[in-house]
Simulated scan of single mutants.
Amino acid sequence: MDEVSLGVEIGGTFTDLVAYGPAGLRTVKVPSTTHAPEQGATTAVREAFADLGAVATVVHGSTVATNAVLERRGERVGLLVTAGFGDLLELQRQDRIDTTVLKYRKPQALVPQSDVVEVIERMAADGRVIQEIDRASAEAALDALAATGIDTVAVCLLHSYRNPAHELAVAELAAQRHPGLTVVLSHQVSPEPREYERASTTVLDAYIRPTVDGYLGRLGHTLETGGFAGDLHVMQSNGGAMPADIVRRNAIRMLLSGPAGGVSAAAVGIMAGWAPFAAFLSRLFPARVRYSGTAFSFQLAGILGGAFAPTIGVALYAGFGTPYAVATYLAIACAISIICSLLVRFVPDDDVEQIGERASSHAEA
């Protein structure tokens, strides 16, 4: 069977697909289905290939996780912290995006104070146990959160990146007392120092995990039903690709999945010689190179990624306290995306194929 690789990216208006295989390069554009994004992706795949059994790899980029955060449509999350650190998300950091605004207010935390509970335990910065975890307080905290109807709990205990024993104990208790409770542990999501950064990252993972898990589960099931037996990978925020089953348990890695594909494509373009630029951005998907993203992703993130990705990162980190940054990014990105869509129509197909071959040779080297 000839190997075929697909790249699928879901945008707000259109879902784009690029296929590369023995028959060459092929693109498909279909309307996105906002109520069920996976339907647009599967429609594009089926339009490209009637027999999904011929497809070896599908690499998928999506803004599903990003939209869930932007629109505040994530799961209700409870937070379990070390005793004395209940105000962790409220205090945040001293940093301010705009120091000239006199009426500045810190971004609203994803977890309200009422859904934060404390557990008696203490770990030293070097991983030594200062105070063993009080199982009674941990059980009471889990019971209190479950009683309010919370289904997802983020756990961020002090210095768990050095010694995760207490977080693992909480997860064990949760599995015993509340088997249906989803527990997200900070030492697994972000095993790094600085409690606020680790806590906020863990909370964000828990906030979008049900959305990402359900979405990728439905997408995988639909593809398998259509005969697909290959590998389904998802674009990460860092531009790499990861198996969908792993992303379902590490949802935070998909937060900037959509735009990241274009940044990775730009990197491959540099290796390939970078010309013609417009053709590369919107039509390249080299064989054996798992860089997702199509017309929208390439054009939007490939051109603006280097200049505007930090703006998006700051806006996300601050809880979107400055909507002007996000609005400006989207406006400029859309304008340049439209321009590139027009430019690419004047690029010969043989130029596209040439770039694909050069990128593939660099990747194999």
Results as ranks from 00 to 15, higher is better:
A54S: 07
T152G: 00
A125N: 09
F280N: 04
G226T: 06
V64R: 08
A275V: 08
S114A: 15
A36P: 01
G321S: 14
P323M: 10
R72M: 03
A279D: 11
Q176Y: 05
E139T: 04
D245R: 11
G305K: 11
L304M: 12
E118F: 04
G302C: 11
G7V: 07
S297Q: 15
I303H: 11
K29G: 06
E172D: 02
M254L: 09
L256W: 07
V212A: 07
R290N: 13
R177H: 10
G40D: 01
L158T: 04
E75Q: 12
T182R: 14
C334R: 13
V101Q: 10
V8F: 10
A54Q: 04
L330R: 08
E192M: 07
A54E: 05
S32P: 01
N250K: 04
V344Q: 14
S137R: 01
R198S: 03
R290H: 15
A307E: 13
V212R: 05
A266F: 09
T82H: 06
F277P: 00
A174N: 06
S160E: 05
G302P: 03
S160G: 08
A265H: 05
G321W: 07
T148D: 13
I246T: 06
M1D: 05
V77W: 00
R194W: 08
V234M: 05
R283G: 03
M271G: 07
A169D: 05
K106H: 13
L330T: 08
V155H: 07
Q131C: 05
P193D: 00
M254F: 06
G214W: 10
A48L: 08
T15K: 07
L232F: 00
C156S: 06
R290W: 13
E167C: 06
R288Y: 14
S114N: 12
G226F: 09
Y196W: 15
A278F: 01
